[in-house]
């Protein structure tokens, strides 16, 4: 199997690895780095469970090859958790019970993190539209929308006070 050497920064850590040309980024993160927080739900780029941040943008990790991450900065749910970058989203998801089984949650949070950065004034409908590429079978989405709306409002209020 064809191998390539890549250099990638994962959760702030610079790594060099030889990877198989066909290995997608999530298999690389899960199988080679034991970062199992990124989940695979469909491997077709539809369900959103594998959503991670690459160079600050939310991407479907199952649609990207590990070799394509050469030179990139990758943030997984583990890194986003440890840096505190999404602590308010995580707390709001907890308070609103915006997760049940938790399998979609890392991807949902990565998408939500992008939303709160890019669209600080999003209303419920816009929140629903933004997360509509992330499948959640458990919650029915209402609580997720509540949690994200709460974070948006809290961040707006903080911004206003600053």
């Amino acid at each position: 199997m064809e191998q390539h050497e890549i250099s990638v920064i994962v959760n702030g850590q610079k790594l060099r690895r030889r990877v198989s040309a066909r290995q997608h980024l999530i298999d690389f993160l899960r199988n080679e780095l034991s970062l199992t927080g990124s989940h695979l739900g469909c491997e077709h780029g539809v369900c959103g469970a594998c959503t991670i941040q690459v160079n600050g943008t939310a991407v479907r990790g199952c649609l990207m090859l590990a070799v394509q991450a050469d030179g990139a900065k990758v943030e997984t749910i583990e890194g986003l958790s440890d840096s505190g970058a999404i602590a308010d989203l995580q707390e709001a998801f907890h308070q609103y019970n915006a997760l049940q089984c938790g399998f979609c949650t890392p991807g949902m949070l990565a998408t939500a993190a992008e939303l709160v950065e890019l669209h600080p004034h999003a209303d419920r409908e816009e929140i629903r539209a933004h997360i509509s590429g992330n499948y959640c079978r458990c919650t029915g989405y209402h609580a997720i929308v509540d949690a994200i709306a709460f974070v948006l409002e809290t961040r707006r209020n903080k911004g206003g006070a600053a």
Binding site: R30, H94, N97
Partner: peptide, 21 residues
């Protein structure tokens, strides 16, 4: 009461079967 056992899931640190090696 917020569920006490979901913080791990919020951090991607749960243990689903495929996470076990």
């Amino acid at each position: 009461v917020p569920r006490p056992n979901v913080k791990k899931l919020l951090q991607g640190r749960g243990t689903y079967v495929d996470d076990i090696t």
